[in-house]
Amino acid sequence: MKKRSIIQLALILLVCVLLVSIALTQDKDQDKEKIRVFYAGSLIVPFEEIEREFEKLHPDVDLQMEGHGSIQVIRHVTEIHEGVDVIAVADSSLIPDMMYPDYAESYIEFATNEMVIAYTDDSRYADEITEENWYEILKRPDVKFGFSNPMLDSCGYRTLMVAQLAEIYYENQTIFEDMIGCNFNPPILVNEKNGTYIIVVPAIFEPDTKKVIVRGGSVQLLSLLEYGEIDYAFLYKSVAEQHGLRSVDLPSEIDLGSPEYEDTYEKVVVQLGFQRFSSADIDRIGKSILYGITAPSNAPNKDIATEFVEFVMSEEGQSILHEMNQPTLDYT
């Protein structure tokens, strides 16, 4: 009798242990509403904070955040047909171009940025570089610099725009070729037509010197700077500040950060070497950097997605972006 009781007790305990184990291994977020937010890679730092604060206000929501290049963010909705609740991109014009009318009806411009030359204390000529001489410093034979691939990253094609706009601003027609063009084979051609400069990126975009390093995304340039493998990198100002880097602010006429110079920026077009995405045009026209956000028409959780967009646009959301060194638009 005693033995039987022990066995029964052991069986009951075993069942209890199994049930408790199953309960413990369940994802504690399982019951939360999952909201997918896809955003441009340059928003990683501020959107981590936005995520934290939004989830504090909505404990029943689990934000699932994913960073990509801006075009790829949109393709996840329009071509890969994933259920995405909110998209935020580093070029607001991509939303009407790629999502209207089937996948979006409107969008909001919520942030801006500008291009800078980022560097560290250890960069060669760190104490010499200024807004006036940066392109001369970058041309020096012992200086290495990097930028992201214009085929893959908006910061990459914006780098080429900056170099060409510099020729106009500094009235020096050798800047693009001597600083960037001469390091590539096949070459990057620049054709002038009626006052517009068209930069033609070859299908195979590879430097043939050690002076320039190209990476798929601008975020990858950060570690190259950190380890001293390059001296300078073309980055968004927000990214440079978020990672504690020094930077040269460029004149407003060339930094792509001032809407009042839109006419100047439009004088430069980057034509990509091949149509990497069938839904995206190969021409990138110079314009001021404006970030756009929207909840796609087919967002699985439209109501909470709209709340998220409203939070980003709210005083609190905009203040978080500011604190994280992400410049915002003044809506006051």
Binding site: R75, E79, I80, A203, I204, E206, G273, F274, Q275, R276, F277, S278, S279
Partner: peptide
Amino acid sequence: DGYMMVFD
């Protein structure tokens, strides 16, 4: 899905 990549 409309994606293309070119290799040398």
